[in-house]
């Protein structure tokens, strides 16, 4: 069982209260009508599946019902940080060789 800190409730809570919601920081294109089918499909369906650090969207489903972001290691399950919507991660894999 993971202990997850909700940045809105400001507390560590049991994983049971949360739902994962996939990759974080996906921005909806502002001009969908100008996109090719491939570009639109990339926005809709294509997701990262990294081994190591990943930025994910989670929902505090039974708590404040807010979405927030999490930086998590997909190998060790270690949670590096959680942060509010609109914020950027402070821990990134950019230094690492991808």
């Amino acid at each position: 069982m993971l202990l997850i800190k909700c940045p809105y409730c400001e507390e560590q809570r049991e994983e049971e209260e949360f739902s994962p919601a996939g990759q974080a920081h996906i921005v909806r294109p502002l001009n969908p009508e100008e996109l090719s089918d491939e570009q639109w499909a990339r926005y809709l369906f294509f997701r990262k599946n990294p081994r190591g650090l990943h930025h994910e969207l989670w929902l505090h489903a039974h708590g404040c019902r807010k979405y927030f972001n999490m930086t998590r290691n997909t190998v060790t399950y270690q949670i590096m940080e959680t942060y509010k919507m609109g914020q950027q991660p402070s821990v990134t894999a950019s230094q690492e060789v991808k």
């Binding site: 069982m1 409730c9 809570r13 049991e14 049971e16 209260e17 019902r65």
Partner: peptide, 25 residues
């Protein structure tokens, strides 16, 4: 519930959105 009901983590007047028998409460 999985929440910590010790008075230090759950003082009087505090409200917690969590699960009770896996149902939201």
């Amino acid at each position: 519930s999985g929440y910590d009901f010790h008075l230090e983590s759950f003082p009087i007047g505090k409200v917690v959105g969590t699960t009770f028998a896996k149902a939201g409460a």
